[in-house]
Amino acid sequence: MQTTVNYPKISVIRPQGCLNVTNALEFERDLTQQLVQHKVSVLVIDLGLVELLDSTGLMALISGLKLAQSVGSHFRLCSVSPAIRMIFEVTQLESVFEISEGDILVA
C-alpha cells in the first residue's frame, strides 16, 4: 500500500512495507502516471516506510528516474533508512539518484 500526495507540479509517492516483485509493477505504473499523465516537474519518492527493497523494486526506481530524465522532470528520493541506503551503496547507485537527507525536500 502507498499514498500519493499531490502539490502543484510536485508529487510525493510514499510506498510502504516491501517494494519488491509483488508490487513493483504497480509502483512503476504510479511513477509513470505522475510523470506522463500529471506532468509533474518534481517527483519525490519518500522511502521512510519501506522496510524491504529487492532488485525488482530497485529496477522500478531506475525506470522512474530514466523516465523523469527523458521528460525533463526531477526525481528525488528522501527518508531513506540506513538499511535501504546500503542497497544503493552496494549497487553503486547512491551517486545516480538524488537522495535527500531526512524528510521531504522539494526545493
Rank of each mutant, 00 (worst) to 15 (best):
F75H: 03
L19F: 06
Y7P: 03
Y7I: 10
Q69L: 07
S63T: 13
Q34F: 07
L31N: 04
G72R: 14
L35E: 03
T91F: 10
M1W: 00
E101M: 04
M59R: 11
P15F: 06
S63V: 06
N23F: 03
G48R: 02
A107E: 09
I104N: 01
E28T: 10
I104E: 00
I87W: 10
S95C: 05
I84G: 03
I104D: 00
L53M: 04
S81I: 00
V106T: 11
R29K: 13
S100A: 07
L31Y: 07
G64M: 01
G17R: 08
I10K: 06
T3P: 12
M59Q: 10
E89W: 11
T4Q: 13
A60S: 13
V44H: 12
S63G: 11
A68E: 02
M59A: 08
F27G: 01
L61G: 07
I104W: 02
P8I: 08
L47T: 01
Q37Y: 03
V36E: 11
S63C: 12
G64W: 05
I87S: 07
D30Y: 08
E98P: 02
F75A: 02
V106H: 06
L25G: 10
D46V: 05
N23C: 09
Q34I: 06
R85W: 10
S41C: 14
S95N: 07
V5G: 15
R76V: 14
V106G: 05
L105G: 13
S63E: 08
I10T: 05
L61A: 08
F97T: 11
V90L: 05
L77T: 00
V44M: 13
G48Q: 02
T56P: 11
G17Y: 07
A107H: 08
F88L: 09
E101K: 02
V96Y: 00
T56W: 04
